[in-house]
Nucleic acid binder design. Structure first.
Lengths: 203, 203
DNA sequence: TTCTGTGAATAGGTTCACAGCT
DNA sequence: AGCTGTGAACCTATTCACAGAA
């Protein structure tokens, strides 16, 4: 398959959010653009990589386009997600409603700290991270969320990769090394604040 | 000032993190690149937008480059940050060590929910969001973090903008409208998972 | 010799503009 | 007439490659 840019995928995801809230049966590229903060040409180009979903003179059928984008993004199948790191951030993520809503189900939580192990979080019992490999062998997961301290992140990731995890959402503030068939997305909040600092400093 | 791309700024922020951990007194663009997951040419180009900080044949002085990047990013001055939304995510952010470490001080927390108002969070008392404008008039902040539900985010942002906030880090999963002199960075975690879903679906 | 600094070349993403359906 | 689909033009970011300083 043709290489699609990350920004296109992110925009599709944004369009999807608005399609799901749309009231009218059809929507134009211009309207989607306005909602998603982009241009109508961009919307049409983004969609054109995957096919021709619209009707000229009319726009896009909301239910059809919704279905198509969900399909492109692979959201139909639903995912089992394991979370490593039961700190504050892990806690927020477990509760985060947006994940479940989108078909991402957190099925297990791991931590190192014996004070956390055994406690219940949103219906899940925090397990000792030493069980990570054996658990994943029994119940594989495609996606893991890493919310550990920076120091342990790479080690945890190595173990996840060995256990067959293919995609990792990383909240630890370090770039992670993984083999080319594994996808990592790092969310670094301090870094986001620093870009804001830069824009404040340069005006 | 010449327009610098967001990706350059983000990489500077990554380099800075490694410079602060570096042990040797000098470092080459190749080494910084390896640590930061990029190329040596990229490192040199990024830095060249702001000056010539290295010595040919030698590399960059770690303390000097650290200072220069902190200066470029505007991190020397320190920032007062207000947080709106005392939910799970807000709680995680208040505790997040990376912020304080980098000179971002959360000075107030606001919420709408009377059950949360008055409770202590990390030494701060959660205040009723109705005091937002009067508080900001007394003690202005340049930066706000918005961690409210999607529905209230735009309204909160309008009030922040009217109160003189110039930079917003948004965790609500909606694009926000702000005047051109205000900078917004949105972190949307469900969206990050969706890009991972896409890459799993297309292999 | 090593490693920076930087124009030039390349690649990639966005916008334009218009032909072609409905 | 309205709005899509898309090649072409444009613009921006990355990579190359090499001259030049330590």
């Amino acid at each position: 398959m043709r290489k699609i840019s990350d920004s296109t995928i992110r925009r599709l995801s944004v369009y999807l959010r608005f399609l799901e809230q749309a009231k009218s049966p059809t929507i134009s590229s211009g309207e989607l653009a306005r909602l998603g903060g982009t241009t109508s040409a961009q919307v049409r180009k983004d969609l054109s990589f995957f096919g021709s979903f619209g009707k000229r003179g009319l726009g896009y059928s909301v239910p059809e386009l919704t279905r198509r984008i969900r399909d492109i993004l692979g959201l139909e199948r639903g995912y089992r997600v394991v979370l490593v790191g039961a700190g504050r951030m892990g806690g927020a993520l477990v509760q985060y409603h947006g994940f479940r809503q989108r078909g991402f189900h957190i099925t297990a939580i791991y931590d190192q700290d014996s004070r956390k192990i055994g406690s219940r979080w949103n219906g899940l019992v925090v397990r000792d991270v030493k069980h990570l490999e054996t658990d994943l062998k029994k119940d594989p997961s495609d996606i893991a969320i890493v919310a550990t301290p920076a120091e342990s992140a790479q080690h945890v990731v190595d173990r996840l990769v060995r256990s067959g995890v293919k995609a990792i959402l990383n909240f630890a503030p370090v770039p992670l090394n993984v083999p080319p068939d594994v996808e990592v997305k790092t969310v670094n909040m301090a870094l986001e604040l620093e870009t804001l600092s830069y824009s404040l400093a340069n005006r």
